[in-house]
Write a protein that binds this DNA or RNA. Structure first.
Lengths: 383, 383
DNA sequence: ATGCGCTACCCAATCGTTTGCGCCAATCGT
DNA sequence: ACGATTGGCGCAAACGATTGGGTAGCGCAT
């Protein structure tokens, strides 16, 4: 196609047609209002014809240099190899592509140093905004200046208690503390997956509600001795799910003793270890809520090692309803949350923030999918 | 920091110092040989000092426009929510970051139309190269021109038979058919995860060998009636693992009848369906090789539904040794392959291709991790 | 005094687009 | 018939960085 002289540019087209590059530019990329008045119908047709005969593609670097808009967004996650995160990212990518954005996505391993490095890196790439999926509750990497004097300038109030009250079942949280104010180094950003205590605009699952749903279910089954494998204390996903669960049990007059809430990494081995701790004591709980499916699977491994039968000797519920949950030998009760939708909404929210509109956090409604791992009622072997 | 006048540029620094921008440029970003002769030690010091006081970051759009190098690479995968793929990507991202590259990664859902769209999109973003993790054996999206006349211009020979012989245990395959020749629209690219029959430069697991290892294990356990859940017929991962397995059994004088090799999607439900088909007949196999762990988990679900006990009534092996494999109620025998390493090597290979060096494909050596799902010898209930 | 080679800079073109402004001709209003 | 509009373009200045080519001044040998 573009046989001859190097890459095809506006200038190339203009010269071949004896026109000026500005005319060609307006016809091909001008705002649709301007396209009409840019050239006569005939000229416009010739331009368009040659352009796609030559396979013209605007050079995004030139465009970005001129317009100061890159149509790029940076996306941060702890690790893409976790299916929950990967699924959120699928939503992000889908929506971003739809809107003509491309994404840089990186793994920060939940390490604040790496978070700051990566934020600086994507900022250096001149992204239009960021989607942050690895926020810590205290908003650490979002506020502190990085090594290069970069970092998110937060206009929000300081963090409150680490274990917040959570969204409490409402599907909207407050508006951004800074409205459309500047974020990291002035770049707009939104949170996804996890929120912060500072209330930065975020799209999350209503994790608090999710935790309550599990508690409700356990209560209905008659479980009085329960425990939580709570994930990392710095992640709102873990703490909100936990507090939702704990709150409901407290309301039922059955407050959980502290040793029944164990924090651990969000993976199978983390879940395994926590479960061993919880299950080896003499006052073994009859039901465990693992705040994600990976930890739940680790718990299954631990239960297996201890000779406990799932759904009979031990009830177990997970969170996220990953595709594996249903296929396990004893299918896993889990809280289903719309993950890809979170990603899509995060993109839309970011776009609104970039446009300078006021934005509000969103919490998506989860629901409980009951399967055999929680039995049909309290198992015969449990009191 | 950069309090006053907008973003800090070379010009800004130059003016404040009464120097010319080219001087500043050479000091800050020139090749290290040139930096020395660019300015006097004293001047250089002042430049550097002011630069990082102001937090100068070169504008990548301007640089790319000028140098025609973007330090961007496009990465294509079927779906990031599959852990195998996500893990490869972690390796890609790690190595890319190390080398100063950023990546655009997209999900193509194994749909050739989307593949072509996405290739066109990243090419439009002026990436320096591509890493393709979703290649089909026939190399479809790599050779056919896309809608915009884009697409990979392959210089390689046409595809051979669909079921190739595989790398056959060698750890190097032939060099690129086109050497450093142009790829998609002239852009350099390498394959990862899956190879093509056309022999494009690729970094893969030695899948053929992986299949053989499983066959070897099954044979040692005494299994004579075996089956393969083979994955998608267009993916070399599936076909190579299958042919490795099948070849070994043929060598042992036990060729597999065709109905014992079932293709299916690479996910739990695909595995589940295929397993039901294989296990419901009267001549039920005593061992199944699922070409990936997800399909293996689907098989576990099917076995559960049919009342078969894993490791006793049925031996099962998977592939990739995902973190779940070890935690399952009956731990899963699986072929371990260095996935993140694949990703890292793919980046290095691409870099060499971009540099115009001749490159050769690489196949990484897998090894078998034996666990309870294949029992210790042929189970008592199996003949 | 001339020429040579340094050092330490400066000059200016260039990459491909975007966009406010201006110009010329044709058309319109009166 | 004359000034005002408007359609259809061209002009040129950005955007921020890179880079091949000066050149002024100096020391030094001839």
């Amino acid at each position: 196609m573009a046989g001859d002289g190097g890459p095809v540019t506006l200038r190339g087209i203009a010269e071949q047609l004896g026109l000026h590059v500005s005319t060609v530019s307006r016809v091909l990329n001008g705002p649709s209002g301007e396209q009409a008045r840019a050239a006569s119908g005939e000229t416009a047709r010739r331009i368009r014809e040659l352009a796609d005969e030559l396979g013209y593609r605007p050079n995004p670097h030139a465009t970005s240099l001129r317009t100061r808009r890159s149509n790029l967004v940076g996306v941060l996650f702890p690790r893409l190899s976790e299916i929950v995160v990967a699924t959120i990212y699928e939503g992000v990518e889908e929506e971003a592509t739809l809107r003509g954005l491309s994404t840089f996505v990186t793994n920060t391993h939940d390490d604040p140093t790496i978070q700051r490095e990566r934020i600086a890196m994507v900022l250096g790439r001149r992204v239009d905004g960021l989607i942050i999926g690895d926020a810590h509750l205290d908003g650490a990497a979002l506020t502190d200046p990085g090594p290069g004097g970069e970092g998110l300038r937060s206009t929000g109030p300081g963090g409150k208690s680490l274990r917040g009250t959570g969204p409490g079942g409402k599907s909207l949280r407050g508006t951004s503390p800074g409205g459309t104010g500047p974020g990291l180094g002035g770049a707009p950003f939104v949170l996804v997956n996890r929120r912060t205590d500072a209330g930065h605009p975020a799209v999350t699952c209503d994790d608090h509600l999710g935790g309550r749903l599990v508690a409700e279910h356990f209560l209905a089954l008659g479980h009085r001795q329960v425990a939580v494998i709570a994930g990392e204390p710095f992640a709102s996903t873990g703490t909100d799910r936990t507090s939702g669960f704990v709150d409901r049990y407290r309301e039922a007059g059955l407050p959980l003793p502290t040793h029944r809430v164990r924090h651990c990494p969000f993976d199978t081995t983390g879940g395994h270890r926590a479960a061993v701790d919880l299950l080896s004591g003499s006052d073994r709980p009859t039901a465990i809520f693992a705040v994600n499916d990976l930890a739940a699977i680790g718990t299954i491994g631990a239960a297996r090692d201890l000779g406990l039968r799932l759904g009979e000797d031990l009830a177990l519920a997970g969170f996220n309803d990953t595709p594996l949950a249903a296929e396990l030998p004893v299918p896993l009760t889990s809280v289903h949350s719309p993950m890809a939708e979170q990603g899509r909404r995060a993109v839309r929210l970011l776009l609104r923030r970039i446009a300078g509109e006021p934005v509000a956090s969103e919490a998506l409604r989860p629901d409980l999918v009951v399967r055999a791992s929680t039995g049909t009622a309290i198992g015969p072997s449990l009191l």
